[in-house]
Write a protein that binds this DNA or RNA. Structure first.
Lengths: 264, 264
DNA sequence: AAGTGGTCTAGACCACCCT
DNA sequence: GGGTGGTCTAGACCACTTT
């Protein structure tokens, strides 16, 4: 098993370099976090290269005068970052820098806009109880003709339309629809009032698509202009589908940014 | 502090329901994972509703006859799922079901295609050392006219073009370019050979855009058809930009799927 | 002051991998 | 068989929040 190597003229001196580091017991930063930072620095600087094995947990505990459980907490952070991979019975190994990997997040609209420094607002275009279209009934596993709650909203950023949101939700209880609850659209609360099943999880598919005339008119963009088309599937705890929707995000204003890989 | 409540006619009886559960010490599933599953079930079923406090860690340890460290490991998993949030000094609280939240991942192309059941392949269109265009030189913080490595590739899925990849990379060493290394395009290895700085991280921005004529011709789609345009920024450990690229993903074939929120 | 989560310890045994 | 990571224990002290 290769433990240390050399590439491209760069020397790797992981153990020696690590051995010179110390945990500052007087710091407010807890030891597990200090150790994670120390190892991260030595990995990113190349003292440990891709494929190299880190010193065993017991050895790190000895080197830094901390317990093994504390060492494990450090390494777990680094593993979450994708920097190293622990392998039972073998050791903990440095990964290739994940240059072709990244994660993105889709966030609740208002929160998302606030994070981007824009002021979110919302206009309820329509909310009605209707007989489920055949396509929707089959998706939601309802008898054809069963009633569903249909909601259309336009979501604004700094008073400009950004997202066109259409959703079909299970409607089992005959409760009257309150405009107020749909403006803010706390989806779990809405479904708790109108549906017999508790929503538990959403899955999404993001595609690109050309705006229809309707979508373009509402969003204030040219017909056929490209946009993010986000399909939403709301599931209950037992896995059945209890809501389905399409969100169209303006392609000329909206974008996704990969999440920073930080030590948390 | 509200600890238990009632909503929409559903009763919440978290503590009593939890108290009836047991850890199976003969199971191969470790206790921390069993407890995480137990709590997840009672949260998703509504025994604990949004805002409710879970029993304190010490109480859970007592209830299930396990140590507090083990309880903490269970709760940490649930916190990673976004199901609960622990708050020092206050307690651990159930979140709203994250119906409007999701995460996506951008993966290395071959890995991505394999996961989708497609056979990845690659064609190197061009690889050359060139004077950095002004725009690129300023991005990579190079003197104007410095040489950079420019690579154009077409990435195929089941022998159909899927992604058009163009990248500019730092080129400091004058090493000859080997076609083979660019076919597989292990980016860290390529940069280790040709650059003096170690790449450490990538950041991405995903936009929608219409294909240019060049892009459309290479991808085999109509000009102006919508596509995912992924901008890549490759950083070194010290934060400086050492690579920049644009990847165009076919809009008619490619899509992103949100990651399942699973207990790992 | 009491209750909560956050961190740490110094052990222990186990499952797994390699030789 | 020896070395590795995975899990667990039974405590301890601390930081923070609420009463």
């Amino acid at each position: 098993m290769k433990q240390q190597g050399e590439t491209g003229g760069r020397t790797r001196n992981g153990w020696e370099a690590l051995a010179r580091e110390r945990i500052d017991r007087s710091s407010f930063v807890p030891p597990y976090y200090q150790l994670a930072q120390i190892i991260e620095r030595h990995v990113r600087s190349g003292d440990f290269g891709p494929g190299d094995m880190l010193p065993p947990e017991a050895e790190l505990a000895r080197m830094f005068g901390i317990s093994r459980m504390t060492v494990r907490k450090s390494i777990e952070k680094l593993a979450q970052l994708g920097l190293v991979t622990a392998s039972q019975g073998r050791g903990t190994f440095v990964n290739q820098p994940p240059l072709e990997h990244a994660t993105f997040s889709l966030r609740e609209f208002a929160e998302d806009m606030q994070a981007r420094g824009l002021r979110p607002s919302c206009r309820l275009l329509e909310a009605k109880v209707m007989r489920a279209p055949a396509e929707v009934a089959s998706k939601l596993n309802l008898d054809p003709g069963r009633r569903v709650l249909f909601v259309r909203r336009l979501l604004y950023a700094d008073d400009e339309p950004m997202v066109y949101d259409r959703k079909y939700l299970r409607y089992d209880r005959g409760q009257p629809i309150l405009e107020a609850e749909l403006e803010y659209m706390n989806l779990p609360a809405v479904m708790a009032r109108h549906s017999d099943v508790l929503p538990s999880d959403s899955r999404f598919v993001v595609r690109v698509a050309r705006c229809s005339h309707e979508e373009a008119a509402l969003l204030g963009v040219e017909p056929d202009s490209p946009a993010f088309q986000v399909e939403q599937f709301v599931h209950s705890a037992d896995g059945s589908l209890v809501g389905w929707g399409i969100l169209v995000y303006r392609g000329d204003r909206y974008y996704f940014t990969s999440l920073p890989r930080l030590l948390r």
